[in-house]
């Protein structure tokens, strides 16, 4: 699943480790989500959306449309 996590992170000048700390996951987990190798669970997707104060669909794109 495509996502804008890296762009949103760069806008805030956060490293993957810093974002991981804010989301309570590892740096590797952030990297896997950013690169589309891991689709986050619904609870984690909501945590990401709340952190960036955006709707989930503005961050993640399931490419079905």
């Amino acid at each position: 699943m495509k996502n804008r996590l890296k762009v949103l992170r760069a806008e805030r000048d956060w490293s993957q480790a810093e974002l991981g700390m804010r989301l309570d996951v590892s740096r590797q987990a952030v990297n896997a989500i950013e690169t589309g190798k891991h689709d986050p669970s619904l609870p984690l997707a909501f945590r990401i959306a709340r952190l960036f104060d955006m709707p989930i669909e503005d961050i993640f794109d399931d490419e079905l449309d």
Partner: peptide
């Protein structure tokens, strides 16, 4: 020493 959450 990279930043990480307490759980990680």
């Amino acid at each position: 020493g990279e930043p990480q959450s307490a759980k990680t």
